[in-house]
């Protein structure tokens, strides 16, 4: 166990957190991702922009293994994860949030977090109730705190506002020891106040946790990232710092003229 961990560590020093090489994904005749190559460093915070249909969510699905790529290679901290099932990638510290709410609506906020924390643990099946000092319960409390959800502990998810559900998604992504989180449009449909809270939550994440965020709202995205990737028609169109991207005429052309929502 320790040998594996230390071997992984020496690798992480040299390798990128996330490395995509010529990744493509087609659905029948439709090429949703076309030869995408990108590198994200450990602890880096990256935004992915692009009009609807540019392939952003498909990119996430390829990285997490929900819909593996049809061509190309994906390395996670130096390790080739291209063919690994999603759970194996989760075990290696990769997390994601979903665009549409995939929460457990009949359960409370805390129980959702508890299940997420339990899912990444080694013991998932138990018919015995845990005590208060249970490590998983403590972990779920920390996740709840990080996602600014403390006062909603006992609230059923079905009673949560949309913004609170997005926060809960983020909280669940913090289960275990995440090294890289993929946020799929966390600010979609949020009010200005909720967006401010979201920015606070993202900025307060520990520094070693890198993330990639899909975001239409440039105001939100440019305040929480160091580097941007712009996608167009399933391919990488441009990369650069937030300033470069914001002032790039080509980006403005496709982005503002693209008729996205």
């Amino acid at each position: 166990m320790s040998a594996v961990a230390s071997a992984g560590f020496t690798e992480t020093v040299a390798a990128h957190a996330l490395e995509l090489q010529g990744v493509s994904r087609s659905f029948g005749a439709l090429v949703a991702l076309n030869d995408v190559t990108m590198k994200v460093q450990a602890g880096e915070r990256r935004a992915v922009f692009g009009a609807n249909g540019a392939g952003k969510t498909t990119l996430f699905n390829a990285i997490t293994g929900d819909f593996p790529p049809t061509a190309g290679r994906i390395r996670f901290f130096g390790e080739d994860v291209t063919k690994m099932p999603p759970q194996e990638r989760i075990r290696r510290g990769l997390r994601r949030t979903y665009q549409s709410s995939l929460l457990f609506k009949g359960l409370t906020v805390f129980d959702n977090l508890y299940l997420a924390a339990r899912g990444v643990g080694s013991k998932r099946f138990s018919m015995r109730r845990p005590g208060d000092d249970d490590a998983t319960i403590e972990a779920a409390h920390r996740m709840m705190h990080a996602a600014h959800l403390d006062r909603l502990e006992k609230t059923p998810v079905s009673d949560l506002a949309h913004g609170q559900q997005r926060q809960l998604e983020i909280g669940m992504a913090l289960a275990g020891a995440p090294r890289m989180i993929l946020f799929d449009e966390p600010a979609a449909g949020l009010s200005p106040a909720e967006r401010r809270e979201l920015v606070e939550i993202l900025r307060a994440l520990p520094e070693h946790i890198g993330y990639v965020i899909i975001e239409h709202d440039l105001d939100v995205a440019l305040r929480v990232v160091e580097y941007c990737t712009v996608m167009h028609n399933g391919a990488v169109f441009k990369e650069g710092t937030p300033d470069e991207i914001e002032s790039d005429p080509d980006v403005q052309q496709i982005y503002l003229g693209g008729g996205h929502g």
Binding site: D66, P86, Q87, I90, R91, L102, L103, F104, K105, G106, L107, D111, N112, Y114, L115, A116, R118, G119, V120, R124, F125, S126, M127, R128, R129, P130, A175
Partner: peptide
Amino acid sequence: PFGLALQAVRDNPRRMASLG
């Protein structure tokens, strides 16, 4: 944990599978 997981399976089996 079993009872909780069972209710979560009812709400969203795919998400439960992706949680491990």
